[in-house]
Amino acid sequence: MTESINAGTNNTIVLEADKLTKRYEDGVLALDELSFTIKSSEIYAMLGANGAGKTTTINLFLNFIEPTSGEARVMGIVTHKEPLLAKEKLAFVSENVMLYQNFTAIQNLDYFAKLGGKKNYTRDDYRNVLLRVGLQEEAHNKRLKGFSKGMRQKCGIAIAILKDAPAILLDEPTSGLDPKAGYEFIQLLDNLRSEGKSILMSTHDIFRAREIADTVGIMNQGKLVMQAGRDELTDKDLEQLYMKYMAGHMEAAA
């Protein structure tokens, strides 16, 4: 690859939610004064049931929706005020990466890399990044039509890597991946962290979250109900806390 990684130092706050609130037109409060910060070389895992507000948070960072109040900031840039500038600092991998089915893996990478402003990559760069995410060479020039979900996911991650943005947003990235692919994915996130990337990941997978995240936040009905560092949690604690906050099983925790 020809471009360098653009990440801050260890103490730089890259992603920040500041009293982020979103109420939809139908009155549903999707997010209620959510606040957190993610520094460089840090992985933040957002856990929560469906409708807890995880995807809404990601949508606010991507400015797909505007906040009712509060701010989402990327490297200090308020996303709804300067969305195009903020998106330059963001890469995104969605839950079900489909990409363009008539394009090969390399053609997809080429398009999205250019869309992300990276125009100098060569085919070798694309091959290298695809190998890095674990996509075998014989698949590089095949159309995505025949790709499995795991293979598509790898392409999605490769696109995020190629963008070389300081922050990466992952929306349910491990859903549907087999254990091997899931393991490889965790290894990859670890590598990205060591390169200085800040990662915000929404997931249902509490064990993978515990395994990789520096900080785990549990969300329920739009609120961040618990936040803890990895060292503070054991797998058992996390499972109990998750059940308690996610499903409202207060007694279970007691």
């Binding site: 797909f64 195009l84 995104f92 969605s94 079900n96 990409l99 089915q101």
Partner: peptide, 14 residues
Amino acid sequence: ERGTLRLSFANSMP
């Protein structure tokens, strides 16, 4: 439906 719209607009594209 294919998810490519979100992915495209995750970039700074007007």
